[in-house]
Design a protein around this nucleic acid. Sequence first.
DNA 1: GGAAAGTATTTCGCCAGCGAAGCTTTCGTC
DNA 2: GACGAAAGCTTCGCTGGCGAAATACTTTCC
Lengths: 165, 165
Amino acid sequence: MDDSVDRHIARWRGKAPFDERVEAIVTRMQFLVKHLAQAKDGALAAVGLQDFEYETLHWLGARGEGGRATPSELAAELKVSPAGMTGRLDTLEKAGLVRRIRSAEDRRRVDVELTSEGRAIWLKAMDLRGEVEDAMVGVLGPDDQDVLAALLKRMLLRMENPGRA
Amino acid sequence: MDDSVDRHIARWRGKAPFDERVEAIVTRMQFLVKHLAQAKDGALAAVGLQDFEYETLHWLGARGEGGRATPSELAAELKVSPAGMTGRLDTLEKAGLVRRIRSAEDRRRVDVELTSEGRAIWLKAMDLRGEVEDAMVGVLGPDDQDVLAALLKRMLLRMENPGRA
DNA sequence: GGAAAGTATTTCGCCAGCGAAGCTTTCGTC
DNA sequence: GACGAAAGCTTCGCTGGCGAAATACTTTCC
């Protein structure tokens, strides 16, 4: 059984010099991520959240009880520009899910923390999002999942540490 | 050695009910795709192309010599909305890389084809893009690449055929 | 002690993409 | 053969994100 990427590659096999293996991997990852974003949008609508809002709450929530972090930390972790993070936080703050606190000892800095409402919605949203992700990853058994995770990690390490051999 | 996803997961282990394996896989794919887009933007600048332009040329080029396809076919293949595809084609047509031809037998339809200039730039861009992708996927040996491609394909098949068991 | 360099965040102008509405052409049916 | 439904593409209004400049505060260096 072929997927859309197999068909794509077969169509120009021989027409251009290319590494089919690399192309297949990269294109499939792009499509999976896109599919996932679209599927999650639908699921998250049930709690009135968009994908980017969930993602931000999620990394804040991971920070622990207070759920504190500075905008620049979040921007770096989520691979978004600082300006983009300001926009996300504006939205979340307006919705009352997040609170900005100017730091006392260094007043250039801002700390962001989840409100209790933000935490509650985050927890609800995790279930919904989990179902969509499980539907995708669940086709693989636990062992295959471990293999996949390890392979992805090796690539991500390379991207996050360009200097490394 | 941990990547940013390991650190993220470790930080909220036990704080919320969650499948760590699934989370690790999904988040890593998202980051890899994002990293890749950012890295490719830089590389493609050398031929004055943006990522979405390259992607569109690439799927058109795969169609063969004339490089023909209708906007709706491309939109479906590239997982973009029809409106989005109109925008992409506008840009490419203005740049002279692509040509729109109203179909004679069904005048609702439009055929899109690469101009010779479009094909030339596409071929140049493929090299640049290939280097960036190789740098990422190249950490894996050929066998690992095959394993990875196969695992991704199983997931993508599921996403593209929701009915299937 | 005060200017200059540096750091953290926000503002501004712009762009690609989405959903919904609109336009044109074709098909199905009576 | 005419008329309503459907197909194919585009236009419109809006939104999230980016890069660059602006703002606000801190540290360094003479």
